[in-house]
Design a protein around this nucleic acid. Structure first.
Lengths: 207, 207
DNA sequence: CCATGTGAATACATTCACAGCA
DNA sequence: TGCTGTGAATGTATTCACATGG
């Protein structure tokens, strides 16, 4: 039975990409069937948690057997809406922006960069990845033209809020934020924040 | 009263760096006093949660007034052990490694890269940040020599587990992992995993 | 028999709401 | 008065444990 009308806790949604990643890895090793037990060992979550998480969305396994990998993978891709590829804007053409523009791990997992913006005039026109850096003044128009709903912020913290505001005005609804500052955006817009130093700091507590 | 003997939930530890980041920002704006209410608005956690989190470690505020920013900042730095700077190894001298080597946001928050390793012979000797890329065969020895306890993995997923094993053998106890794969390490070793695509995927669920 | 899917039980995290003090 | 610090109450998440069915 499909429970797609229930409310699914955000913490569950956050784990689905990890399940998907593990399944893709198993798949690439030529495997066809797995179990909540095996995924548990690979990922470090309990098998009960994995089964319960999946049960929010339906019944994907066979009792006594486990999960058919390809089917579960496909199902998770659809749930997460990454069965098609999302076009993204990248804002910030510094070292980090450069690394992101050249990163080849996006497309297989449902994303690709289709426009790059920077405020620095010396960066405009530079080739990065498959695209030329555009002036940030073009951003709103390009976002609308290309119907871009997902963006990456890779600018200094001081510029991040302003960039976020402009992205939202351009119709963006999901922002991957690399700037070490909290963004304030309308409720309808999702932000996922990446702060490697915060991660390091929460580990050194234990050392 | 200092509750440093209590067990503090990991989820609380994970928020402390965000409190610290916000305080540093306020500080840089010339502010001297703040409140759980103000931090709540800046960070999006409830004020009660912020007060309770801090209460695990002591009493840092003044009733009727709030928190003296500089004092709370200093206290959090000590709790997280980032009042001194941790030396880090960076493994992987690709685009991402390059961006990390040049990132200037580490030092102010308690970290600095002091050695860079790569397996690719064409990368060896390249200047990145303040350091030359060393062959990964030197890694264990250098880790011991420099007493490095923190490392960043910025290599392809296929090489990550092997690198992690070698880091652990070299005495590393905290790993910031950029490779899109789960690492298995001894219990005493902490891993913080950064997977931007997982973040993107958990946002597209809602679009 | 084996591993899923799931109510019930437990454990954990957040919020409430207020006493206490500057 | 205004805001902290904190037990008690509530709300969420995880784990248990087993009926179910291939």
């Amino acid at each position: 039975m499909s429970n797609s009308n229930h409310h699914v806790p955000a913490i569950v949604i956050g784990r689905l990409p990890l399940y998907l990643r593990a399944l893709t890895q198993l798949s690439s090793e030529g495997r066809h069937v797995t179990s909540s037990q095996e995924l548990s060992e690979k990922l470090g979550f309990s098998s009960a948690q994995i089964r319960k998480d999946l049960s929010y969305f339906g019944e994907f396994g066979k009792q006594g057997t486990g999960y058919e990998i390809e089917f579960l993978e496909k199902s998770l891709r659809e749930i997460l809406q990454v069965h098609h590829v999302w076009d993204m804007a990248l804002v910030g053409a510094g070292d980090l922006g450069h690394a992101l523009a050249n990163y080849d791990g996006f497309e297989a997992r449902g994303f690709r960069i289709v426009a790059i913006f920077d405020a620095d005039p010396t960066k405009i026109g530079l080739k990065m990845g498959d695209w030329q850096v555009q002036p940030i003044t073009d951003m709103r128009e390009t976002l609308r033209e290309k119907k871009i709903q997902v963006a990456i912020i890779a600018v200094p913290a001081t510029a991040a809020q302003q960039v976020a505001d402009e992205l939202v005005e351009g119709g963006v609804r999901a922002i991957l934020n690399y700037a070490p500052t909290t963004l304030s955006v309308p409720q309808k817009v999702k932000v996922y924040h990446i702060d490697p130093v915060a991660g390091l700091q929460s580990m050194t507590y234990y050392l």
